[in-house]
């Protein structure tokens, strides 16, 4: 799938750029990542702000890190956020994957458009409305699971975010490989497991990442449907208004970033090891 990229075009292009490559594409991408990371760098720098204010520099200090380490409320909020985002991502991505497979591969059937509409419904409603409506529903049926309420709500609104990239990938995906698999007497499960899934993986990864990011950032819905003991990090941050935000939040965000980078690096090192060991 990737070797064809390097094939250079010999016929055209002054500098013999390979087909499909464009001048300025990499500078554009660099500009893109500068745009993406400039605020993150600012945020990290300001986490060392000795000042109490988030936005005005008052000298270097690590007080906010020490404070964050001693703040059990904020730690609990971080854990709540991570638990909710992880569980919601796993479930939403699984549900969205199955749904997308049916909708993209099930041919044309009655109720397809309606199903599509239903799956994207959580996307189309302003958050505050979802928040109030879901809370009314939860209290009407007497559901009070604390963090469980939040997790269910998050699974619901994460489904379309996971669904869209997966479906986009499936649409028009070449089915010849799968047919080949079946011609070779692979069972349907085997075809799915060893042919469809690997082909679908980039879509699933993209979908899961979106779901995770959306869940980590949600504030209004969590604020409303959360029961006692379910304050998440965004809820904590948004509720600081009357006291004013402090660089403590930057410190926590920086640590979360570092943790995420550490996890993924570890994952890569591990997966590379297993890859090389299975190759032989």
């Amino acid at each position: 799938m990737s070797d064809q990229i390097q094939k250079p075009s010999t016929r055209k292009g002054k500098k013999m750029l390979p087909v499909g490559h464009y001048r300025g594409l990499s500078s554009w991408t660099i500009a893109f990542f500068i745009f993406l990371y400039l605020p993150i760098i600012v945020l990290i720098v300001y986490s060392f702000n000795a000042n109490r204010m988030v936005m005005n520099w008052g000298g270097f200090g690590i007080d906010w890190y020490l404070k964050a380490f001693n703040n059990s409320d904020i730690q609990k909020a971080v854990w709540n956020s991570l638990i909710v985002a992880t569980v919601a991502t796993v479930f939403a991505t699984a549900i969205a994957t199955i749904g997308a497979l049916v909708l993209a591969r099930g041919g044309n059937f009655r109720g397809k458009t309606v199903s599509l509409g239903l799956i994207t419904l959580p996307l189309m409603v302003p958050e505050i409305v979802t928040a109030v409506a879901v809370l009314i529903f939860f209290s009407a049926i007497g559901m009070n699971l604390g963090l469980g309420n939040v997790i269910i709500a998050h699974i619901t609104f994460c489904i379309p975010f996971a669904f869209m990239p997966i479906r986009a990938r499936l649409e028009g995906m070449d089915t010849t490989l799968e047919q080949a698999g079946r011609d070779l007497y692979a069972s349907q499960w085997e075809t799915f497991r060893f042919v469809t899934m690997p082909l679908l993986m980039p879509g699933i990864v993209a979908g899961a990442m979106l779901a995770f990011v959306i869940s980590m950032d949600d504030f209004i819905i969590t604020l409303m449907v959360g029961g006692a003991g379910s304050t998440t990090l965004p809820v904590y941050i948004y509720s600081m208004i009357r006291r004013g935000l402090t660089p403590e939040i930057n410190a926590v965000s920086t640590m979360l970033l570092l943790a995420s980078i550490a996890i993924v690096t570890a994952y890569w090192i591990l997966s590379r090891k297993t890859q090389t060991s299975t190759e032989h």
Binding site: F33, L36, Y37, L38, P39, I40, V42, L43, Y46, V54, M55, V205, A206, M209, F212, V213, M216, D217, F219, L233, P234, I237, Y238, L245, I249, N250, S253, L256, L257, S260, I261, V264
Partner: peptide, 21 residues
């Protein structure tokens, strides 16, 4: 892809504050 998502691990409000700075 991972590089694209990392910044979004931090809270939207905080990222927006960074833009104010």
């Amino acid at each position: 892809i991972y590089l694209v998502t990392i910044p979004f691990w931090t809270n939207l409000l905080i990222r927006t504050f960074a833009w104010i700075i």
